[in-house]
Simulated assay, not measured.
Amino acid sequence: MKRAEEEQQTRARIVDAAEVLHAEVGPAHATISAIADRAGVTRATVYRHFPDDESLFLACSGQWLSRQRLPDPDAWDVHDDPFAVLRSGLTDIYRYFRDGEPMLQSVLRDTAAVPARITQARLAREREWRDRLTRSLPGRRRKTVRAAVAHAISFHTWRSLCRDQRLSNSSAVALMVAMTAAATENPLRSSVDPG
């Protein structure tokens, strides 16, 4: 019984170390040696618990996600106004981006080092966000409207607006809602969206 508890604690220390290093230096630079050092174990111990990088990354990702308050698309649909839905969704997404910024920035920067299953799950979440936010917008079938929403829900857009340009989350949300509203009206249709 004690041995099993010790093994579980060792595994938890390894996952914690991987999570910290993934946020601090990124998955591409979080070597097994660095993770072992941070966890206070040997590389062999890491490999005994996680036989490959993907199994360790999946455990780390699962733990990190379980500690986050993820965006909740079901909570966005309480409004009749599609722009209120958009505002609610972007507010939720931007809160998540701000809360999870170090990890999200590192993982997106090091996408090539991230297992395909993790990347596919992230992209599926983003498609769900886009689909939920566009489904009641006027002109939702137009390329420009879908592009405006996809741009608005991008972590890179949030980072540009809130970090580089120093907007508050609420100001960034207001700007992206206004941009999307302009895309739905599409006053420049002939030059912007020929289809």
Rank of each mutant, 00 (worst) to 15 (best):
L56P: 01
S66Y: 05
R43P: 01
D80N: 10
L123S: 06
L21D: 07
L108I: 04
T42S: 15
S190N: 12
V177G: 09
A39M: 14
V25S: 11
R13G: 05
R38G: 05
C60G: 09
R163P: 01
S33W: 10
A116T: 08
D80R: 10
H79K: 05
D16V: 04
E7W: 10
S170E: 12
R109F: 03
L188C: 06
I32N: 11
I118N: 00
F57G: 02
P102F: 07
E128G: 11
M176N: 06
F155R: 09
L167E: 10
R11G: 06
L137M: 12
R141K: 15
T45V: 14
D193K: 09
R67P: 01
R43V: 06
A152W: 00
A36E: 09
A44Y: 08
G40H: 07
R163G: 10
L58C: 12
K143R: 14
A59K: 05
I93F: 00
A181P: 00
R135W: 10
A147N: 11
P138E: 08
Q63F: 06
E6D: 02
A172D: 06
C60H: 04
A174D: 14
D81F: 04
R122D: 08
I93R: 03
V177N: 12
T134G: 04
S88F: 00
L123V: 03
V85I: 14
D193E: 12
V85H: 02
P51Q: 12
L175Y: 05
A75H: 03
